[in-house]
Structure formats: C-alpha cells, structure tokens
Amino acid sequence: MKPAPFEYRRPGTIAEAVAALAGGTESKVLAGGQSLVPLLSMRLAAPALLVDINAIPGLDTIEVEGEDGGVRVGALARHAAVLASPDVRRVQPLVPMALANVAHATIRNRGTTVGSLVHADAAAEMPAVLALLGGSVEVAGPAGRRTISADELFVGPLESSLAHDEIALSAYFPALAPGAGVAFEEIARRHGDYALVGAAALVDGDSVRVGYLSVADVPTVVDLSGVPEAGLGDAALARLEPGDDIHATAEYRAQLVRVLTARVVRSAREHARQSREGRR
C-alpha cells in the first residue's frame, strides 16, 4: 500500500507545469490527489513523474462569466469551495445539488471539481452534470490552449480526451436558463459512496433531458422530451444498457433507472415551476 518511487515537480506557473509534462516520460498531474493517491498506493498507477499543480497561484477561482454567463471553476477550486459558493448556487443550482453527493466533506475539502471531471469516472457525479449541461473544460498544452466540450471529453472508463502533456485549467458550467429547472437524485449504499445509479435532470419548456452516472462506461445523456410521465423510466431504459458489477446486478440497475428517472424529472419540473413563480 505504498506508491512506487516517482520524480516530483512542484511548478509555480502554468508554463512551467506544461514544460515539466513535455517529453516522453510517463507523467501525471497531481491536483487534490483524492483519486490519484489511492491509485498510486494500490499501485494501479506508477507514473515516473508527478507534476503537483497545487503551488500555481490563481487556479482556485470560481467566477461568473458575463451577464447571462455560466460559472467557471478553476483547477484548484476544491469541491467544498464550489459547493459553498453562493454564485454557483445562484447561476447553476445543479452543481451544488450534485456536489453534495460527491464523497464525504473531508474528501471534498481536498478534491477538486476539475480533477473529478478529467478523471472521467462514469460513476462520478460531476462528469454527468457537465455532460447534461453541455459544459466544457479549458486545457493548456505545448501547443497552447484549447477548449474541450463535454461531448468530446469523456471517451471511455476513466479516460478523458486530455493528452498526457495537457493540464486542465478550468471547467465551465453553463447557467440555468430563466424558467428552467434541474434536479439530482442518486442511490448509493451509504451516503457519500459512489452511486449505484445517479441521474441529473434538466427541464426547459418542453425539453426534458436526463444525464446518468454509473449506468454506462461514460456519462450518458438521454433526451426524454415529449415522453408521457408514466413512460419516462422505460423510455430511458430503451436508450441505456445498465451493466453488472460487484455492486449491483444489471436488473437492479435497470429498476433504479426506472425509479430515479421518474423521480428526478418530477423534481426538475417542480424546480422549474418554482423558478417561474419566483421570477413573477
């Protein structure tokens, strides 16, 4: 249960960090370490070089962009800070709804929201949220900066489309449109555990979309616009193939999809109704 030896760098600027990652060495970025350190300790990963970004100033920001803009979360903004931010709650309430289900408070004090996105665990809450909202991640690499949309970010189990020499600088969560509603639901063995199945819903007028976690290898968004209330669960299942693992059978997951889909859409509609009334 001890990590294998690695070379360690602690750069003070983004440029130095990008330079440190350049070259052929097998390297990893260290952010909150709440996913990476267990992998290293269990020797499921053994990179030759670790580039610790925690000493780079200015990466812990949480900013609302423009008038109707969404919220941009820096690579060193801890889950706890994002969860506590009144700006985030006002601009995109789905983010704190989902974050409250990410691990325990102690893990959230160190783990970063951006780290959780690029870690790309299909059982994690925030990738499903970013996919549902159509957000993006900004990265820096040897060729400069680029923006990766959520559609293109999640490519496989624990696999994002970042190159090994790129660093994620921030994530962008679009704002909730006026009159739209969101909700988040999950079933986990214990509160704070990874979910057996989770679902995030976005209802905007006639549009109904639900993002799922722990159902497929990547976070999956299903469009349920126009589906009658009673058929929501089955309509979702027609587009999903819940899998088996040590935590739950495929059949049980399918049942959770049915129940959670109905529940999360109902809550999001209620949230939309409240937000319309709140504006009047």
């Binding site: 360690y8 370490g33 610790d52």
Partner: peptide, 18 residues
C-alpha cells in the same frame, strides 16, 4: 490542514509544505 479536516494518507509530505 489549515483548520480543515483532510486525509493525511491521501497527501504527500512534499505537497504539505505551505
């Protein structure tokens, strides 16, 4: 860590300097 609870098994000593 600066007053906030954190797992010391999930941090490296080299990164706890500040």
């Amino acid at each position: 860590v600066d007053g906030e609870p954190m797992r010391s098994c999930l941090m490296f000593a080299v990164s706890a300097v500040d």
